[in-house]
């Protein structure tokens, strides 16, 4: 089990490319040229007295159609605060109807490759982590991160959403995507990143034999001549390099027995946060299974939502 001493002793070798910000500004600028084309299809079977549930779609990088689940409270006066939930690596994004009775809109995003968003991009699991990894512009995660950024645009396109009260959360890959998207999109006013994946790729590869990180070892073993390019690509996608750009309040939750996302690497992301931040350590828990985590996440988000002013700039 890792302890605080291990976390403090860990120093990542990951460095930020000089043109990191330029690269992502270019990606977001290109994305802005693509019409969002948002649409909603109500799902009566999943809706109930408290929540209207819809399947939503919008366009993202390369014109791909991305889907998600969208839950809107049936009661209360909008515009409502909103929570985006980013998905884990292999799980399907689920419905979050529980927020509806709290008068909060939720959007769970099926990034490209997930069911509903994989008609034109389907590298599989395993597969996604190394898809197109030979270059920063071909890497599959360029699209995945774009899909997350476009989820913010989707919410901004909705009249029932208060644009000043958009929050983000997710676990594992969803934790990494929470960090990354919060750095790219200042519209996100706070986030909870649980057991974050996508942190300190070179060290994570060395520390574990479990997937998904081990996909990178497989790639390096089969294509040793391309290993250097792989690591260079990953510098543009490492959440620790996004962390300094996050200005909103952010929580990082770490399970000290995590055998999928090494605790030290998540802690490195936490250390690089420069805005208001909070650390949750779960000593006797593994990846994604700390008993208290879901309740703490809900409680923190509720508190942040209540701290922000409806319809106005928060200060």
């Amino acid at each position: 089990m890792a302890d605080q001493k291990d976390l403090d002793a860990f120093v990542t070798q990951v460095t930020r490319p000089e043109d990191f910000d330029d690269f992502w500004e270019r990606v977001l600028a290109g994305l802005a040229e693509i019409p969002l084309e948002p649409s909603l299809s109500p799902d009566p079977m999943r809706s109930n007295a408290e929540v209207d549930v819809s399947r939503v779609h919008y366009r993202s990088l390369d014109g791909l159609e991305i889907s998600g689940w969208y839950c809107v409270p049936t009661e209360g006066d909008g515009p409502f605060p909103a929570v985006i939930r980013f998905p884990g690596y292999k799980g399907e994004p689920g419905l979050r109807r529980d927020w509806g009775r709290k008068e909060v809109v939720t959007l769970t995003v099926a990034v490209r490759g997930k069911l509903g968003s994989h008609a034109d991009f389907n590298p599989g699991y395993p597969g996604l982590l190394t898809h197109g990894i030979q270059g920063r512009d071909t890497y599959g995660y360029k699209g995945v991160i774009s899909d997350c950024s476009r989820a913010v645009d989707f919410l901004l396109s909705r009249p029932e959403v208060d644009p000043q009260r958009i929050f983000a959360c997710g676990s594992s890959q969803g934790g990494g995507l929470t960090l990354i998207t919060s750095a790219l999109r200042a519209e996100i006013k706070g986030g909870v990143a649980g057991y974050p994946f996508l942190c300190c790729f070179p060290e994570s590869m060395r520390m574990l034999r479990s997937y998904p990180y081990d996909e990178l070892n497989c790639y390096a073993r089969v294509y040793p001549d391309l290993a250097r390019e792989m690591l260079e690509t990953l510098r543009y996608y490492d959440a620790v390099n996004f962390a300094p750009g996050i200005k909103c309040p952010m929580v990082v939750g770490i399970a000290l027995e995590d055998e999928v996302c090494p605790p030290e690497t998540s802690y490195a992301a936490y250390q690089r946060l420069t805005g208001p931040k909070e650390l949750w350590l779960f000593p006797d828990s593994g990846h994604g299974n700390a008993h208290d985590y879901p309740a703490k996440e809900t409680e923190w988000l509720e508190r942040q939502i209540n701290l922000t002013k409806p319809g106005g700039a928060d200060d």
Partner: peptide, 14 residues
């Protein structure tokens, strides 16, 4: 039996 929800015993049980 563990004090969890659907995650069951989590790490101790693993």
């Amino acid at each position: 039996v563990y004090d969890g929800a659907s995650e069951g015993g989590g790490h101790p049980h693993s």
